[in-house]
């Protein structure tokens, strides 16, 4: 994972509540064995017309003035549904670096942080302002500082947002959690000797 310290980018809003991972990336794209090329499948069924190829001109991400937006403003409870990590892979592939909402589904939030896609929680008032701002001014941009956990809005107002300390450490240093867990080998061995396996699948 690359280091993530600062994000500066224009915003685009999908003001819909409960956007589930089947909308972020439909299941038919999960037959892959790697993480490549999923960006074009992001929001596929909203983004393309019946044929699955022609861009739907109505959909916000297809409007030229929003092309290049890297911060997505979404309705409440973003990322609910399945555990597919393909959801953050697809969003990153589509050029997003952060998603702003009032709350995120647990598994989606965990998956995003492990891939350097930053879930930013704001209050409903801020979410509403950002929805309007994104609609009125497609060039509006925000900046995010991970270290200080600060989101700076287009009007210059700076807001704090919550971020798990361990996830923050991993983002800032570009390290993943596996290294941390591997270093605990002695503790895991001690646990295993005190707690014999409950089942043996190979038996």
């Amino acid at each position: 994972m690359d280091k993530l310290r600062h994000i500066e980018g224009s915003i685009v809003a999908i003001p819909v509540n409960d956007i589930d991972t089947d909308q972020i990336i439909p299941a038919r794209f999960l037959k892959v064995t790697d993480k490549e090329g999923l960006g074009k499948a992001a929001f596929c069924d909203w983004r393309y017309l019946e044929d699955g190829e022609t861009p739907n001109p109505e959909f916000i991400l297809n409007q030229p003035e929003y092309r290049g937006a890297s911060v997505l403003i979404a309705g409440n409870n973003f990322g609910c549904g399945s555990s597919r990590e393909h959801a953050p892979w697809a969003l990153l592939g589509a050029g997003f670096k952060a998603v702003i909402s009032t709350d995120f589904a647990d598994i989606f939030r965990n998956n995003s942080l492990k891939n350097g896609l930053l879930p930013i929680i704001v209050d409903e008032e801020t979410q509403r302002q950002l929805f309007s701002l994104a609609e009125e001014d497609p060039s509006a941009s925000v900046s995010v500082d991970v270290e200080t956990q600060t989101l700076t809005l287009p009007d210059g107002r700076a807001l704090g947002f919550p971020l798990d300390g361990f996830a923050k450490y991993c983002l800032l240093n570009g390290v993943d959690q596996l290294g941390y867990l591997l270093a605990l080998d002695d503790e895991v061995l001690a646990f295993e000797s005190a707690n014999p396996p409950r089942v043996a699948t190979t038996a």
Binding site: S82, S83, R84, E85, I107, N110, N111, K114, N115, F166, D176, Q177, L178, Y180, L181, L182, L184, D185, V188, E192
Partner: peptide
Amino acid sequence: GIGTSEVGHVLATQTLL
């Protein structure tokens, strides 16, 4: 349920954060 990165964590360490 866990994500694929966590599947990797459990495969390698049998633990999860």
